[in-house]
């Protein structure tokens, strides 16, 4: 009996160790398999040119249209989400700080929104687009992606602002500043590295999501010059190229996947650096 209890523990410890290692291995496998398959087809041409005639039959060209399109789309959506999201996060933590119940309800609400699949936003965005008489365009995409990332951004910012000590709020108010000054001058400054992390996180979500832009941004071989033009995005360009039966085109899909992965990895690392910086500057009252 006595021995049995230790054997069981040993057994589960091995299992636990195994599953932890498995997760790390899977991540490495994902990154390596993408790099292994994509790097040989990755060339300067891929990054620096838009698709030329016959691109989808394996002739020359690159995915610059999708790279720029994705950047336009995600930067636009992140900015818009920031303009709406930051005030809400500040409002919850500066104005509503005494109304714990209200704040918790809002948080609950945001968590619910956070889980809605992006395809639902996509379908909804499409409906709105038709309703307003818009065509598939950069603007429609930006609006849809904004709706999709707002809950993520607000919740991430809220997690940061939650850690700003109450004493700081009291001090600022007692020195005669208004609540909005406290919010925008004191809280914003104190939490800025953490807020950068939140913004980067949302940006990463925006650039990587395909389902929400599938119906709203359309697809084109050109770099958009106005908000009303359709726009190519990197995830969709990977998706479309991969469904081609021609091998060269498929290989380009893998190369495009490398580009997207590298962008996402850079964002992750930046986010991590900023969140570390925030931890360092944290004040404890």
């Amino acid at each position: 009996m006595r021995k049995h209890k230790y054997i069981e523990e040993k057994f589960f410890r091995v299992l636990m160790f195994f599953s932890t290692t498995l997760i790390v291995m899977v991540l490495l496998l994902i990154i390596f398999s993408i790099l292994y398959k994509g790097l040989p087809s990755l060339s300067w041409e891929m990054i620096s040119q838009t698709p030329k005639g016959g691109f989808y039959f394996g002739k020359e060209g690159g995915v610059l249209n999708a790279i720029i399109g994705s950047l336009y789309l995600s930067i636009g959506a992140t900015l818009l989400a920031f303009v709406i999201g930051l005030p809400v996060a500040l409002f919850m933590n500066v104005y509503l700080v005494k109304f714990k119940k209200t704040v918790n309800t809002i948080r609950f609400f945001l968590d619910l929104l956070w889980g809605i699949p992006s395809i639902v936003y996509g379908a909804f965005g499409f409906t709105i687009m038709i309703y307003l008489g818009l065509k598939t365009s950069l603007l429609a995409g930006i609006i849809t992606v904004t709706l999709f990332i707002i809950p993520i951004m607000v919740r991430a910012m809220d997690e940061v602002l939650k850690t700003v000590p109450f004493g700081l709020l009291e001090t600022s108010l007692s020195l005669g500043s208004t609540r909005s000054e406290t919010a925008y001058k004191v809280f914003l400054k104190q939490a800025s590295p953490g807020l950068v992390t939140a913004v980067l996180l949302s940006f990463g979500r925006a650039i990587g999501d395909a389902a929400s832009v599938l119906f709203t941004t359309g697809y084109t071989d050109h770099i958009p010059t106005s908000l009303t033009q359709p726009t190519a995005t990197l995830p969709l360009s990977i998706f479309f190229q991969l469904s081609s039966p021609i091998e060269e085109v498929q290989n380009r899909a893998f190369a495009s996947a490398v580009i997207l992965t590298v962008i996402i990895l850079i964002i992750s690392i930046l986010a991590r650096l900023y969140s570390r910086k925030y931890q360092k500057h944290k004040i404890n009252f």
Binding site: I30, R205, G208, A257
Partner: peptide
Amino acid sequence: LAGIPSVIFGVW
């Protein structure tokens, strides 16, 4: 792992 776009998971 949480940040990897779903299309990349698809490719993998």
